[in-house]
Amino acid sequence: MDEEYDVIVLGTGLTECILSGIMSVNGKKVLHMDRNPYYGGESSSITPLEELYKRFQLLEGPPESMGRGRDWNVDLIPKFLMANGQLVKMLLYTEVTRYLDFKVVEGSFVYKGGKIYKVPSTETEALASNLMGMFEKRRFRKFLVFVANFDENDPKTFEGVDPQTTSMRDVYRKFDLGQDVIDFTGHALALYRTDDYLDQPCLETVNRIKLYSESLARYGKSPYLYPLYGLGELPQGFARLSAIYGGTYMLNKPVDDIIMENGKVVGVKSEGEVARCKQLICDPSYIPDRVRKAGQVIRIICILSHPIKNTNDANSCQIIIPQNQVNRKSDIYVCMISYAHNVAAQGKYIAIASTTVETTDPEKEVEPALELLEPIDQKFVAISDLYEPIDDGCESQVFCSCSYDATTHFETTCNDIKDIYKRMAGTAFDFENMKRKQNDVFGEAEQ
């Protein structure tokens, strides 16, 4: 370990593993360490099931009705991949897709007046949907046509809207959309967690709705994908990429100290040895004095023996409960997957309800979601602090990732990755940087 590296990475969460992969592909010498004996950090999948019970201090362990412990891979952080989103792009560019198998999530649902409705995925579904009345549908269709044709580089498509100054509230007004449709559009399509976006320039919202539609167009059922064997497969896929390009991995490796000289990182000390480096990437748990708390998320993992009611017996789905429907500031989400994804025993389902904490009784906040899941065989409640770095790391060369937020997709995580890359490399992130180099010394032969 007593060696000189360009970059040392602490923690094998998804953000850290993707950055480690990119740095290795770009010719950097990388050492990647984790104090845990497993990959994934906060974003790991726990197996066998006995391990999950232990982690949540349920000492009696799983009953026999849960089947074989080894058949379970339970995500600690519930997220899906947008089919046309940035993480899929990263997987394709790096060819990490060859280590993973994905399934399309069967449906996306939205909560309205105590019931759940399928988010329409085709024009026919939209016309048949009970989510809105006849005239509302016509106006909504006009709005969707506007979004589909919108091109930020072609003012002819703006229809009198200025993407940089017109607020989204004004765009909704222009198409005369009612409150329910606005809730549905902002939260189930643009996937905002709160209503803060309404008074911001509309460009980002329009682009988010386009991303949803384009992702949906790829597979038809929903815009989301999920990897077989759980999300823990993602960091491992990128760790393989890093290793192929010469990255060194050490799990179960305690970090005793991060060594600084004149305010700059110069190395990491572990078990009496020092590895030197020019730059350091880590998750917040490794540098508690360089991060601040930015809120909390509650996630309740529920094991069920039945599909969720009114989802047409889907073996995977997402449910969004827009905040307006339950008098909150932030949406509540449910991600459900099952034995069909090799993450649970035969006939079992895993539904994870999550939201940003707003009160001193977080469990009560998630109740509307839990009511949709009854009866629940077993619950595991996790309340996590969200951390963000206190500075950009440019001076110390210590670059810290943000905690995983309450969103049900990876777009915010990818933004964090691109942002850290830019601060480390001094140049904007470009997907081309992730391409495997042809015929290089570490390149794998085609399968």
Rank of each mutant, 00 (worst) to 15 (best):
K210I: 09
I350L: 10
M90I: 08
Y39L: 08
K269I: 01
E204T: 15
F410H: 15
E214M: 01
I298L: 07
D195V: 08
S401A: 05
Q86K: 00
K253G: 15
D377Y: 03
S270G: 08
K210T: 09
D289V: 06
R169C: 07
S167M: 07
K309T: 10
N153E: 15
R299G: 00
Q57R: 08
I281M: 09
S330V: 04
A353S: 02
S44R: 11
Y111R: 04
S222W: 10
I300F: 07
E388M: 03
C402W: 04
K103S: 02
F109V: 01
L100S: 07
Y404R: 10
V381L: 07
Q323H: 07
E60A: 05
L234A: 15
I337T: 10
D2T: 03
E432P: 07
K379T: 07
E388A: 08
N36T: 07
F429L: 12
Y197H: 07
I303G: 06
A425F: 15
D170E: 00
Y111S: 05
S65Y: 06
T412G: 01
V96M: 09
E123K: 13
D419G: 10
T165L: 14
E367Q: 09
G69S: 07
L76P: 05
E233Q: 06
D289K: 09
L14M: 07
A243W: 02
I300G: 05
L191F: 05
N130H: 04
S285N: 09
R193Q: 14
P389S: 08
I420N: 04
K278W: 13
I116L: 12
P201H: 00
R98Y: 15
Y421D: 10
R299V: 01
A340V: 13
L59I: 13
G21L: 11
Y249K: 06
Q346R: 11
E395A: 05
L198R: 06
N315C: 04
P48S: 03
E365S: 02
I321A: 01
G113N: 03
S215F: 03
Y111I: 05
D2F: 06
E136R: 03
K156T: 07
D361S: 10
E51W: 14
K379R: 10
E204D: 03
N310Y: 11
K89N: 07
E261A: 11
S44Y: 00
T412W: 07
E95K: 03
P155I: 09
C400W: 01
Y39K: 01
N310A: 13
F150G: 09
A148P: 03
G27L: 09
N252W: 01
C414I: 13
T47P: 04
I209A: 00
N73G: 02
S222R: 01
N324S: 11
R35W: 05
S401D: 03
I383C: 12
G178E: 06
E261L: 15
D416C: 10
K278N: 10
L131S: 13
N153R: 06
P48L: 03
K269E: 10
G11E: 01
N327P: 04
D180E: 13
P120S: 06
F109E: 03
L373V: 12
M336L: 06
V181T: 11
D256G: 09
I18Y: 01
L373D: 03
C202L: 13
L189Q: 03
S330P: 02
M424E: 15
G426H: 15
P235H: 00
V357G: 07
T97N: 00
M33I: 07
